[in-house]
Simulated assay, not measured.
Amino acid sequence: MIENIKDLIPKNKGDLSTAQKLKNYSHEDLKEIVPDLLEWLQDLNWPVAKPVSEYLESINDKITTELLSILKNNEDEVWKYWIITVFGPITQSPIIKSEIIRIAASPTKNEMIQEVDEVAKGIMNSRNWK
Rank of each mutant, 00 (worst) to 15 (best):
I83W: 08
W82P: 07
I84R: 10
P107D: 00
V86E: 06
A104T: 04
P94I: 04
I101Q: 13
P94D: 04
P94G: 00
E77R: 08
I95W: 01
V86C: 10
R102P: 08
I90K: 11
I90P: 10
F87I: 07
I101L: 14
E99T: 09
Q92S: 14
I100A: 06
I103R: 05
A105L: 09
S93D: 04
W82M: 09
I95P: 00
I100F: 05
K80T: 13
P107H: 02
K97A: 05
P94S: 00
R102T: 11
V78M: 14
A104S: 14
I103F: 02
V86M: 05
E77C: 12
I103A: 02
S98F: 06
S93T: 02
I100P: 06
I90S: 07
P89K: 10
I84T: 11
S98T: 09
D76L: 11
K80V: 11
I100H: 04
I95K: 14
W82S: 03
I84Q: 09
S93G: 03
W82Y: 15
K97G: 00
I90C: 12
K80S: 14
S106G: 03
Y81S: 08
E99L: 05
K97S: 00
Q92D: 13
I100D: 01
I90L: 13
A104E: 03
W79V: 04
E77I: 00
I84V: 15
K80C: 13
I90T: 09
P107W: 00
I96P: 05
W82G: 06
I101R: 06
I103E: 02
A105E: 15
T91C: 06
G88M: 09
K97T: 09
I101Y: 06
K80P: 13
I103T: 08
V78W: 12
I96V: 15
K80N: 14
I100W: 01
P89G: 11
W82K: 05
I101W: 02
I101F: 03
S106D: 11
D76M: 10
R102I: 04
S98H: 14
W79T: 12
W82N: 10
K97I: 02
S93L: 07
K80A: 11
D76V: 11
F87C: 11
